[in-house]
């Protein structure tokens, strides 16, 4: 039992590490504001596909990593990714049933929530407001969700992660 539970943990960790890499990889100046939230997307997928493996605690830990990596307030991403993970866990069975494009819409809502929390926190600590393209990463996240979904599903089935 324990052996089967552990199976494929490396794959999950690997996808998260790739997501972290994509979070800080240098982009041209103009595209920096459009970077989708990779860690959020990967987290949503695993929470939906394997709710018994990846959950709120993983979300919190990954959020902490993102905070350390991007120099934001320690705990900011941890908080918002915890919330995302929690909501995804709540609705994971419904999410699995609907077609991918409908999942995309849910993902948009989750990512906007994630950014909204980030925005609230940064306003509370006295940073200035944001331009309209602040929200673009969420929209982009919605657009690339099918791609992420198919890729990660392929990985999960290929390596029989369960």
């Amino acid at each position: 039992m324990i052996g089967s539970r552990q199976h494929g943990g490396g794959v999950i960790a690997f996808t998260f590490i790739i997501a972290l890499l994509l979070t800080v990889i240098p982009l041209p100046e103009g595209l920096r504001f459009l970077r989708p939230d990779w860690v959020g997307l990967v987290l949503i997928y695993w929470c939906m596909a394997l709710p018994h493996r990846v959950g709120v605690a993983s979300g919190w830990f990954m959020g902490l990593m993102v905070d350390l990596l991007t120099g934001t307030l320690l705990g900011q991403h941890a908080l918002s990714l915890t919330v995302i993970a929690y909501i995804t866990l709540k609705f994971h069975q419904r999410l699995r049933l609907v077609p991918v494009w409908q999942q995309s819409l849910t993902v948009l809502v989750l990512l906007v929530l994630h950014q909204l929390l980030a925005l609230w926190i940064s306003r509370i600590i006295g940073r200035p407001g944001v331009p309209w393209y602040f929200w673009m990463p969420s929209v982009l996240g919605m657009i690339i969700w099918p791609l992420v979904y198919v890729t990660l599903r392929g990985l999960r089935r290929g390596f029989r992660v369960s």
């Binding site: 709120v56 605690a57 919190w60 959020g63 307030l73 320690l74 705990g75 900011q76 941890a78 908080l79 915890t82 919330v83 926190i121 600590i125």
Partner: peptide, 19 residues
């Protein structure tokens, strides 16, 4: 619980140098 932990972390990081 983790949410409150994050909030505590954030407050401590913002207000104090201890972190």
């Amino acid at each position: 619980m983790l949410v409150s932990l994050s909030v505590v972390l954030m407050v401590m990081d913002h207000r104090f140098k201890s972190l």
